[in-house]
Each structure stands twice: as structure tokens, then as C-alpha cells.
Simulated scan of single mutants.
Amino acid sequence: MTKEEFKNLEVGKTFTLGFRKFIVIESGIDCSECCFDKLEDCPCSSMRINNFIPECSGRIRKDAKDVIFVEVVK
């Protein structure tokens, strides 16, 4: 997968960060349900810039969809 493909990971696709798996889900502009928004001091901006997580803003994504990330629990 290229860097560009990862930044624009499709809705319904999953990715791994460390030992955890996350799924991309379409949402409104609200980040409150995103698992990364729940972290103290919300590090998601630096995580996106450093390519640890895909882009979430519809203003930047090629599909123009706002998305959130939810952990896949087995």
C-alpha cells in the first residue's frame, strides 16, 4: 500500500497500529466517537502528520468523507 492509499483508506477498511486493529467508519464532522479523540490531549493531528493513522477530514480526503476510527474488538 502506498502512502497516498493509506492516507485515504476507504470506509470499511482496517489498519493496524501497534497490536491494535482499527476500522474506518464514515461520520459527520464530530470526532467524539473516534477512539483517538478519547485519548488524553488528543494526539491525532501529529499521528496523521506522521502517517500512523489515515486522514479523517473530508476536506483533505480524496473521497470527501469525514471519517472516524473505531477499534476492532475480537
Score class of each variant (00 low, 15 high):
K74T: 09
E5G: 09
R48G: 09
P43Y: 03
E5I: 01
R48P: 05
P54L: 01
C42I: 03
P54Y: 00
R61K: 10
I53E: 05
R20K: 15
M47E: 08
I23T: 09
C56A: 07
N50Q: 01
D37H: 15
G12Y: 02
D41R: 14
F36V: 04
L9E: 02
K13E: 03
M1A: 14
K62Q: 06
D37T: 13
G58H: 04
R61I: 00
V67K: 03
M1S: 14
S45N: 13
G18I: 03
G18C: 08
M1H: 12
E40D: 11
R48N: 10
S27D: 00
K21A: 05
E71K: 08
C35S: 15
E4W: 05
C42R: 13
V24R: 00
I60C: 10
C31Y: 04
V73P: 08
T14K: 15
E26L: 04
E40L: 10
R61P: 04
F22L: 11
R20T: 08
S27Y: 00
E55W: 05
L9K: 02
K21P: 01
K74C: 11
A64Q: 06
K13L: 04
E55T: 10
T16C: 12
R20M: 10
N51T: 01
L17I: 01
I53D: 06
P43Q: 12
L17R: 09
D41Y: 11
L39P: 07
G28F: 00
N51S: 05
N50I: 03
F15S: 09
S27E: 00
K7G: 05
G58C: 11
P43V: 06
D66P: 04
E33W: 02
C42F: 05
F15T: 04
D41I: 10
E55D: 15
G12M: 00
I23P: 04
D30W: 04
E10S: 13
G12C: 00
E26Q: 14
L39Y: 01
F52Y: 14
T2V: 03
I49R: 13
E26M: 06
G28A: 14
S32I: 02
I68D: 02
K74L: 11
A64L: 02
V70N: 08
T14D: 07
R59F: 00
S57N: 10
V24G: 02
I49E: 14
K7M: 08
G58I: 05
D66C: 05
C31A: 13
D37P: 06
D63R: 11
D63S: 12
E26D: 12
K65N: 07
L17D: 07
P43I: 00
F22E: 10
F69L: 09
S45D: 13
V67I: 11
C44I: 15
K65D: 03
N51C: 02
N8R: 07
V70A: 11
K3T: 09
F36W: 06
K13S: 10
N8M: 01
F36P: 08
E26T: 06
G58A: 12
D30V: 08
V67E: 01
K65S: 04
K7I: 03
S45Q: 13
L9Q: 01
G58K: 10
D37C: 14
D37V: 06
N51F: 06
D66Q: 01
I29N: 15
E55A: 11
